[in-house]
Amino acid sequence: MSKQALLIIDYTNDFIDDHGALSCKQPGQILENEIVSLANQFLQQGDFIILPTDLHIKNDPYTVESKLFPPHNLANTWGRQFYGKLENWYQTNKDSNSVEVIDKSHYSSFCGTSLDLFLRERNITTLHLTGVCTDICVLHTAVDAYNLNYNLVIHKNAVGSFSPEGHLWALNHFKTCLGAQII
């Protein structure tokens, strides 16, 4: 049986809350209960829950994202805290050996991070992807995971985006081009 991990990608105030710096708002907000439910399920099963989360420095001239988007997910700010019930879940479970936050500065959770090493050390072969945005950070993470030979499961009720068209396109791409299981 393959070992699995749940990735909750960029589910922060800046990406979800109505007052967030780069918020997809309602399409992200409606995922809250499903994401927390999945986190509880994976924790109870003894699986890993990984929270790859953007971390930026204001006006960083070396990060491409700072040229495309307003400042967001800045270190030690309200915007970088997890949104709603996920923040409460994280505060309750952050000391568990099964919960890991991985800072990232690019769309993909793998780019410039220790995620692949973390997964391989634990013999994890299947990744369950949740979070935002379906057609940006979740997509880039899925493509890199596919190229690194991970099995992919996308929870369609736990991913969302700014654009309904981009969201649907990404779900189709996960299935038809990356062989992901969509549940």
Results as ranks from 00 to 15, higher is better:
Y83S: 09
T126F: 07
C177Y: 00
C111E: 12
F174R: 02
L168E: 13
L152G: 05
A170V: 04
N33G: 03
H173R: 08
L115H: 04
H173S: 02
N13R: 15
F42G: 12
V143S: 15
G20A: 10
I124A: 07
R80Y: 10
I57N: 07
I16F: 12
L178Y: 00
N40H: 15
P164D: 03
W78K: 08
L178E: 01
H173C: 02
E87T: 03
I183A: 00
S37I: 05
Y62A: 00
D144Y: 12
I136P: 02
N123T: 13
G46S: 06
L127P: 08
G131W: 11
W169Q: 01
K25G: 02
I16E: 07
N93Q: 07
T134S: 06
F118V: 03
Y62T: 01
V132K: 14
G20S: 10
E65M: 03
F118E: 04
K25E: 09
I49R: 11
V132A: 11
Y107G: 12
V143M: 15
E87G: 04
C111A: 13
A180P: 05
L171W: 09
I8Q: 02
G112Y: 03
G179Y: 00
T12Q: 07
T176P: 00
F69D: 01
S2I: 06
S96C: 03
I136Y: 14
T141S: 08
G166I: 13
D17P: 06
A145F: 09
A21W: 07
D135F: 04
D60R: 13
T141N: 11
